[in-house]
């Protein structure tokens, strides 16, 4: 209606600012209870720490949730499910990852079966350090996330769209990791050696 492009842009900016302000006070979360962090959630949800005073509520399905909580280490098998859940969520969506296991593997740094850096596979907006973080830490993380949302800095979901191919490539690599040729040779040698004995 006679609006210039620039005006439209400005309107969009203003509206999304408003939307962010409103939505940051009603974060619905789906907590993907892996690892040790699941046990920290009940005190956060119930009357002791009472997350609902900040407008945070647990949600049963990913399609209606805004925040995905990854509460600890992930095996490759679980990662596949996490990605399914993450992709079902509607934008804008945020990810909070708990504990050192999601940051760099934590105490499972040399485990054959757990992924080491969660952000290689899905974008993470916020990490909480600790093994495991206490409920105060979790509440603090939510407040921090609200601040980031308000400032328009929690944009992991946009990154996921922008670098979609790269995320997919990383996921494919971890799901279909194959033994390399040299490793196969090594195995053969080992077997031969064993047979000689």
């Amino acid at each position: 209606m006679g609006l210039h492009n620039g005006d439209k842009m400005m309107r969009y900016e203003e509206w999304s600012k408003l939307a962010r302000k409103a939505s940051k006070r009603s974060l619905w979360m789906v907590h993907f209870c892996t690892g040790c962090g699941a046990i920290e959630m009940p005190p956060v949800m119930t009357s002791r720490y009472d997350m609902e005073r900040f407008g945070i509520a647990p949600m049963a399905t990913p399609r209606q949730a805004d925040v995905l909580l990854i509460t600890g280490y992930l095996t490759v098998k679980t990662l596949r499910r996490v990605i399914q859940v993450y992709e079902q969520m509607q934008s804008p969506k945020y990810v909070i990852a708990f504990g050192s296991c999601t940051i760099n593997g934590g105490m499972y740094w040399d485990s054959y079966n757990t992924i080491k850096h969660l952000e290689k596979y899905i974008p993470v907006d916020l990490y909480i350090a600790g093994c495991m973080p206490r409920p105060e830490g979790i509440i603090n993380a939510f407040l921090e996330l609200m601040k980031l949302i308000d400032e328009g800095k929690a944009r992991g979901w946009e990154r996921y769209q922008k670098y979609y191919d790269k995320y997919k490539e990383n996921q494919r690599r971890v799901f279909n990791f194959e033994v390399k040729e040299e490793e196969k040779e090594e195995k053969e040698q080992k077997r031969e050696k064993n047979e000689e004995h």
């Binding site: 850096h117 290689k120 971890v174």
Partner: peptide, 13 residues
């Protein structure tokens, strides 16, 4: 672990 997990790059940006 080195071959499987550490060889995967971080997403740039």
């Amino acid at each position: 672990v080195k071959q499987m997990y550490e060889s995967i790059p971080f997403i740039e940006g």
